[in-house]
């Protein structure tokens, strides 16, 4: 059984019909990416999974349980962590305090320390800056912190929304290396990304979204070959 199964969800912003029947599955251990242009419904899909938005129709099954009506603050308890679009770190807390907030719902001091060390191993930069105010760090460091904070809950599924946004190409590469590493350590990842190039490089499968619908779903390698995808999202003619 798939870890996450999204079945034909319809989500709305007021009267705007943003998702018109999105279905997707994420198997345990996979990296799955959602690609598509601005306004295609990528973030809306993540928000629907994470409970910020409740789909009006359809089901979302995670780990064998329906979660479409679960509020966002219960998601972490169930094993879904999110690194939201625009990072949303606590900019006036220190790096350490941010990471501690990521483990807010946990009580196992030893386990928290282990995960903290793991995050510092993944992002040595953060270890150097534990006492620094998060808001004073560079964009790349803040993105590392946002991912690290999400990892502090030891999630089964990690939702990443546009981790490459606003970062220099070198940094994007670095961040995606770590995302691959996180996946290799056993965390399943659902990645929303406009930068389809890098996303399809680390993902095993991809879904292409257009105006609230899935228009293509295939292994990442195939999507990279697809002429339509190449033209629309990989910047090739």
């Amino acid at each position: 059984m798939a870890l996450l199964e999204v079945q034909d969800i319809h989500s709305y912003y007021g009267h705007i019909h943003a998702l018109r029947g999105v279905s997707l599955t994420v198997e345990k251990g996979e990296v799955v990416t959602l690609i598509g242009s601005n306004g295609a419904g990528k973030t809306t899909t993540l928000r629907s999974i994470h409970g910020v938005l409740t789909p009006r129709e359809g089901r979302i099954v995670f780990d064998g349980e329906e979660i479409q009506n679960v509020p966002p603050h219960d998601m972490i308890e169930r094993g879904i962590a999110q690194s939201p679009e625009g990072r949303k770190i606590f900019s006036r807390m220190t790096v350490l305090e941010n990471l501690e907030m990521g483990a807010y719902h946990r009580n196992d001091g030893v386990g928290i320390q282990q995960d903290m060390d793991r995050v510092f191993d993944l992002f040595p930069r953060l270890r150097e800056r534990t006492k620094q105010e998060a808001g004073t760090m560079s964009g790349g460091e803040q993105q590392m912190l946002a991912i690290g904070r999400a990892l502090m809950s030891r999630p089964k599924l990690l939702l990443l929304d546009e981790p490459s946004m606003g970062l220099a190409p070198v940094l994007v590469e670095r961040i995606f290396q770590v995302i691959r590493e996180i996946n290799e350590q056993g965390t399943t990842i659902l990645l929303v990304e406009q930068n389809a190039n890098v996303a399809l490089e680390i993902a095993s499968r991809g879904y292409v979204l257009e105006t609230g619908r899935v228009v293509n779903a295939a292994p990442a390698a195939l999507l990279r070959q697809d002429p339509k995808v190449r033209e629309a999202y990989l910047g090739e003619v």
Binding site: P84, K88, I89
Partner: peptide, 13 residues
């Protein structure tokens, strides 16, 4: 600081 992020940390607003 940030309600959205707080909720994502498991805080019931």
């Amino acid at each position: 600081e940030d309600e959205t992020a707080a909720a994502a940390m498991g805080i019931n607003l």
